[in-house]
Computed example of a mutant assay.
Amino acid sequence: MTQIKNIGLYTSGGDAPGMNAAIRAVVRSALYYDIEVTGILRGYEGMVRNDMFKMNRKSVSNIVQRGGTILKTARCDAFRTPEGRKLAYDNLKKNNIDALVAIGGDGTFTGAKIFGHEYDIPIVGLPGTIDNDLMGTDFTIGYDTAINTVVNAVDKIRDTAESHDRLFIVEVMGRDSGLIALRTGIAAGAEAILIPENKNGMAGLLDRLENGRKDKTSRIVIAAEGDDAGGAFEIGRIVTERFPHYDTRVSILGHIQRGGKPTCMDRVLASRVGVAAVEALRDGHRNEMIGVIHNEISYTPFEHAIKHDHEISNNFLKIVEILSL
């Protein structure tokens, strides 16, 4: 059992619904084990600027249901330099912090991996990103809330699409990963889904519009922002040019996908991995992400958790093709 006395806790990168539930779980489980918690504001920027404060039970009261992150988040160019990381480490020592819990995604864990190798401080991470693009966990904190937000929005868009016999191109987040688009497209009954992992998405959409049913009163196309065609407006331009008889509209959902109250699934996931993070530090784990695979807590080294090319199941794409008839 490793003697941890003071955990530094921070969120970094893009915010995700459920981060506050994870913060709450880390703080309360640490206090349960008689470990102090120091909150670090704005992630790595707070480390470099020594922007830290002691946390207690009251610090995390009434936040489990709130979106965003009470610890704030920011990018930090200084931390990318050896001098910045040295300053961050010195500030951690000034605050008697002897372990870290990082909540974030690919960029957060990249920084944690480098920092953990340079300095002798145990770090574990919690997967907080709406993109669900980390290895070592079935789902990331925020993903379930984000896809439910998208489905609710698309359901509303379909109402007006049917009223006016329109074709809507709906762009969702996912610069490098199409997992949001893939699941929400199936759930919303999309005509087609365009994602970065499938380089034939645009050709498939044009073929569907050319040879598919002509009696549909509305058509919804879901496109990840990193799709192969160059974005929703470019897709709309191509479709309009090729099929001028369609009344085509573009809707970009944007940052509404990051906000809102976390779903029950995200709150439970955040709570589970938050408690597991504290227990992992006590058991001597370091430089690992805490996730859940097949409903069991898992531990994945940062270098393996950081974004890899995900293979999109052809079964999902086949489902879209079958159900769009």
Rank of each mutant, 00 (worst) to 15 (best):
M1Y: 08
V150K: 07
R28H: 13
V172E: 04
L92W: 01
E311T: 12
A153V: 02
M289A: 03
T263C: 11
S298D: 03
D51K: 09
M265D: 07
R158C: 00
E241N: 12
G178L: 06
D133H: 00
R213P: 06
D90L: 10
L194I: 04
N152S: 12
I97T: 05
I238P: 04
L317I: 06
I147K: 00
I40T: 09
N148E: 13
T160H: 08
A188L: 05
E288I: 06
A187P: 01
G43N: 06
N56L: 13
H310L: 14
A16R: 01
F115M: 13
A277I: 07
S59E: 14
H245V: 06
I238L: 09
V268I: 06
D144Y: 00
L269C: 04
T145F: 08
S163A: 13
L167K: 01
E197L: 10
S271K: 04
T263H: 05
E288S: 11
N96V: 02
G201C: 15
S29Y: 15
N152V: 03
R267D: 04
N314S: 12
D227M: 07
A188K: 05
E118T: 06
G189M: 03
L179S: 10
V64Y: 04
N315K: 13
K5D: 15
Y32F: 15
S313G: 05
V268N: 06
E241F: 02
V250S: 07
G84D: 14
G116R: 03
G13M: 09
R272N: 04
R80G: 13
E45I: 01
T145Y: 07
M1V: 07
V275I: 15
A232Q: 04
K156T: 06
T137F: 00
I306N: 03
V27I: 11
S218Q: 10
V64E: 15
S59Q: 09
I7F: 02
G8Y: 00
T248W: 02
N50P: 01
R175G: 13
G231P: 02
E225M: 03
